[in-house]
């Protein structure tokens, strides 16, 4: 996704054809660079100033957030907000739930998706195209509408307020995602490897388990991380299908901070920061794996 060739299109100086054209082209180059910087500064501020404000507020003492106009550069930094979060056992429960549910979702999604994706990538069978479209489309249906039935369905099986309900509901969006990511990954595996194994009389399952999946380890990890992040970020399913004992951080934070305690902005920003960190870390890891995975594929394939 964010893996690109290092060769960028540089602001190439104009070809020296005729002097006026050359001067004009160069002026445009400078103008273009200026425009580029303006765009980066303006849009970049829009992107990053809120991040700064999140960081600044989470290290500001609560009473200092009740100042108007707010101090743009906080002077009295503190860890008080984070300490208050640690002292709240309910928030710890949400955190544990988030980790458990996202982890199980990721592992389950990758395992189920890997087999399906392998079939899509390396086998041609009737209904393959329509099945692939169905998998792709299945993540485009609105969650609030699915919930109209999912709630009753989980209730029927006594699964409301359980990890199982959260894992299953998260799988509605992580499974299609993993199938498509892994299919892309398996597509890059050279058929020759599989054929060679077939000639050596390896069974079909053995080919999958001893050759395809090990080669694809970086892809499996990448898909798993993506699924983890998507599960971690989910709000509506965890809000609806679980109560406080099983809820994950996003709905947990809404329940804790929105409403009665709506004024607790500093601890809320600290909690938001904590909730965001795993996602950002996962993404940094993911980027490495994507790069490594593609490089490995090039060597081995």
């Amino acid at each position: 996704m964010t893996v690109t060739s290092p060769t960028q299109d540089p602001t190439t100086p104009a070809r020296p054809r005729t002097p006026p054209a050359r001067r004009r082209a160069r002026r445009q180059g400078a103008g273009g660079r200026l425009a580029a910087w303006i765009a980066v500064v303006v849009f970049g501020s829009f992107a990053l100033l809120p991040v700064y404000w999140l960081l600044a507020t989470s290290f500001t003492p609560t009473q200092s957030t009740f100042q108007y106009p707010p101090k743009l550069i906080p002077t009295d930094l503190t860890l008080e907000n984070f300490r208050r979060l640690v002292d709240n056992p309910q928030l710890l429960t949400y955190l544990v739930n988030s980790v458990v549910v996202s982890l199980i979702t990721a592992v389950l999604s990758v395992i189920v998706a890997a087999y399906m994706a392998y079939a899509f990538a390396k086998h041609r069978f009737r209904g393959r195209k329509s099945l692939m479209s169905f998998v792709l489309a299945s993540q485009l249906f609105p969650q609030s509408l699915l919930l109209v039935t999912l709630y009753g369905l989980f209730d029927l099986y006594g699964l409301l307020n359980s990890y199982a309900a959260l894992v299953l509901s998260f799988t509605t969006f992580t499974l299609p995602l993993c199938v498509w990511m892994l299919k892309g990954f398996f597509d890059t595996i050279d058929d020759g490897i599989i054929e060679a194994a077939q000639i050596d009389h390896a069974s079909r399952w053995r080919i999958v388990h001893s050759i395809v999946l090990p080669i694809s380890a970086p892809g499996l990890v990448a898909a798993g991380l993506f699924a983890f992040v998507r599960g971690w970020n989910d709000f509506i399913f965890a809000l609806t299908l679980a109560g406080p004992e099983r809820q994950t951080l996003p709905p947990g934070l809404v329940n804790t901070f929105v409403g009665e305690a709506a004024a607790e902005w500093a601890p809320l920003m600290a909690a938001s920061l904590i909730t965001s960190i795993p996602v950002v870390v996962a993404f940094i890891a993911l980027q490495r794996f994507l790069v490594g995975g593609i490089a490995a594929g090039a060597v081995k394939g």
Partner: peptide
């Protein structure tokens, strides 16, 4: 990258 809920709080 940040969760939708965090976007909303911010």
């Amino acid at each position: 990258l940040v969760p939708g809920v965090v976007v909303s709080f911010l």
